[in-house]
Amino acid sequence: MEKIKKRMGLPNASEDLSSEMEVDAFRRLFPLRYFERHLAESIRPDGRPLMKARETSIFLGAVASANGSALVKIGSTTMLTAIKMEVMTPSLESPDEGCIAIDFHMPPICSPIVRPGRPAEASPVVSKQLSDTISSSKMIDLKELSLVSGKAAWMAYLDVYCLDADGALFDAALLSAVAALSHLQIPAVAMNDDGRIIIMSDEEGQKQEPVNKEKRKLTLKSILFSLTCILHKNYILVDPTSEEESIMETHVTIVLDTSGQLISFYKPGGSVLAYTAAIQDCVAISRQRVQELKSILENSAMEVE
């Protein structure tokens, strides 16, 4: 804060107004100029270098009553995901496949722009992006969710709740969905006489034939990680906060999987055009981030065991 005030005090012919105003007022009235002053020194207002993402932490098993859950924090952005498994009858075209239903919610607690009854604009977009990304990447083999071919299969309801919205919502949501899927334990079930599937409790374990022997985990072929960047003039800002996202409009989200394939390159408009050089820079930064996130996820998985 002191550093910024000193910088503001330097004589600058074209921007005398800034030296007379308080920092907070300047930040609110001229947000773009405030940020550009920082970018010229290759730093951002919260002290991060341009290419550095915020501190990320994953906590598996946050919701004890769900079959799989994860709480993810990227800086202040907090996402809580829980997976609940229910039984459904599979469709006729694919009797061996289960189903995953992904939903993203932004409850009113997460941000001042969300009101009860008036959902945020970002919420259905992130929800659809999430479900498209996870289903088109073939990370999960739906055949693993089958119980009795043609009669019963698992429907996994994956609900992502945003508890605190501070930029990079899609990144945090994808990371928490992936972490919850890696933590998911499918319960052991048996079919009772009526043809309904019920969870095997220890007392009745002997009576029925278990459909799946013991609790198991889903195999994830290759894990997805994403990174959101902002393009502004010639700068690439990694992992924006909500303030940065609201000022600079050009966002790029890159989803890579651990085998290096590009799952999604999502750039919805924006005044800055993305040239090949910028695209390759963003992809290179994303690859580094994938390694970081992969090790964070592995560490948190080890802590659970």
Partner: peptide, 18 residues
């Protein structure tokens, strides 16, 4: 040569994308 918008779906390699 710059792109305004890009929306992709499905897994492809980065070279394929370029």
């Amino acid at each position: 040569h710059g792109i305004i918008t890009s929306v992709t779906q499905g897994a492809m390699s980065v070279d394929d994308y370029l």
